[in-house]
Simulated assay, not measured.
Amino acid sequence: RSFVKSLQLNATNIEQLLSKLSKEQIQMILERLTEYEFSIPRIDVEVTKEQLWDKIHGRWRSIENWFLGTAGAGSEAGKVFDTTNEIIRRITRYATRISEQNHSGANRREEYAKIARLFWDCKTIEEAHRLSAVVFGIEKPLHLKGDIKRDTESINSGVYEEPPAMFTVVPRVRTYREKSERKGIIDRTKEKEQMRRENLKKLKRQQELLDSYVKGNRLEFATLPEIEPYVRDTFLMWLSKALERKEQKAKTEDGRTYYIEKPQHDQRCLLKCSDGTFEMPAYTIVFHEE
């Protein structure tokens, strides 16, 4: 720290000297430096006075900016000294804190031994309670108002003679959320297996119903009887899936391949369903023989 102070003092002296120089004096000093630089002989290098003047003038501006600073900004020397002093303060503070931590254990052991001897010297339990209130009590206790039910209305009963009252204090922050209760993983293997069997039975019944409308590997929309909505949706899904492709071929959910046969002479048909009837081209879905 003394070394930094000496550097700072020297920088202050240089700053004072630079601030006392007038523009005429600075101009004279720079011209003499230029003349001196120009008088030095050089080998294989040709320089002009203008080049030397620009170089020396640039160095002078750098020196002024370092010690005096520019308009609206402090000097670079001052910034370096401030940063150095801040680093030294931090190192000193950390060293003090480490020293306090090393000595805190011994000091606390002595304090605990002193408190234990004070409790040992208490004659009665009431005296120990009073000492405990002084040692472990708080300066500003929290008083809670509310409809607190007591077992007795006596004003002479002490806090040690009545059961404790429990209060849940919630933090007054918006981000507070109550902790969710952790529960173990419940084994639902039987329920899953039962649900899987029911879904398989349902899919099997639907597949049998769909297969009942396929005659000779052909599903002709013109010859279909009145069907349910989910059957109609399945047939139309098959139809649209194949029509979207260039070769007009597709595959069902159970892996059967089929292609679309377009109606002749743009023939149309009426598809009857339990929820209504609509008109459509008389397409035919032809399944490949397995």
Rank of each mutant, 00 (worst) to 15 (best):
S132Y: 05
T48Y: 04
E126C: 01
D44K: 13
M195C: 11
M195L: 13
R245C: 07
L200A: 13
W60V: 01
E139R: 12
T84Y: 06
V159H: 13
T257Y: 08
L271W: 00
T257F: 15
H288Q: 06
F167C: 15
K201M: 13
S22E: 03
A71C: 11
I63Q: 10
L9D: 08
G105A: 14
F81C: 05
R174D: 11
G58E: 11
H57Q: 09
R93Q: 14
G158R: 14
W120L: 07
R182N: 14
R172P: 01
A165Y: 08
E50W: 05
I148L: 15
I56N: 03
G158F: 15
T34P: 01
N85G: 13
L7R: 09
L18Y: 00
L9S: 15
F136L: 14
R89T: 10
L30F: 05
A165I: 14
S154I: 09
E76I: 05
A250D: 11
L219Y: 04
R150M: 04
Y176D: 08
N199K: 15
F38C: 00
D233G: 02
F287H: 03
T48S: 09
N65C: 06
K241A: 08
C273T: 08
G58N: 01
R89A: 14
R268W: 02
E261D: 14
Q8L: 04
N102A: 14
I87T: 12
M28V: 04
E162A: 11
L7K: 02
Y259E: 06
D211L: 11
T189K: 07
E162S: 15
T84W: 08
I148H: 13
L30H: 00
T223W: 02
W238D: 00
D266N: 05
C122F: 09
K192T: 06
K262T: 07
S157R: 13
L7S: 06
K183F: 09
E31K: 03
G216I: 12
E178S: 13
I155E: 15
W60S: 04
T48G: 05
D82A: 10
D121P: 04
N217V: 04
G105Q: 05
F278Q: 03
K201S: 14
Y213H: 15
K262I: 10
Q194C: 07
T257M: 07
E24P: 06
A11L: 04
D151G: 12
I227M: 09
D233R: 02
F167A: 08
R59D: 12
A165K: 11
I87Q: 04
R218Y: 10
L52G: 04
D233C: 08
M166S: 05
N199L: 05
R182C: 06
E191R: 06
E37T: 06
Y213M: 09
R218S: 12
Q207P: 01
E244I: 03
D275K: 01
A222C: 02
L33K: 03
I155C: 14
W53E: 14
Q207M: 10
I40R: 03
N102F: 15
A113N: 03
R93F: 04
L271F: 01
D275G: 01
A165S: 12
G137S: 06
Q264E: 15
W238E: 00
H129W: 12
L224G: 08
P163Q: 15
W53N: 10
Q264L: 10
K249D: 07
G276H: 05
S39V: 03
K201L: 10
A133D: 06
Q264C: 10
K123H: 11
H129N: 07
A133T: 05
I148P: 09
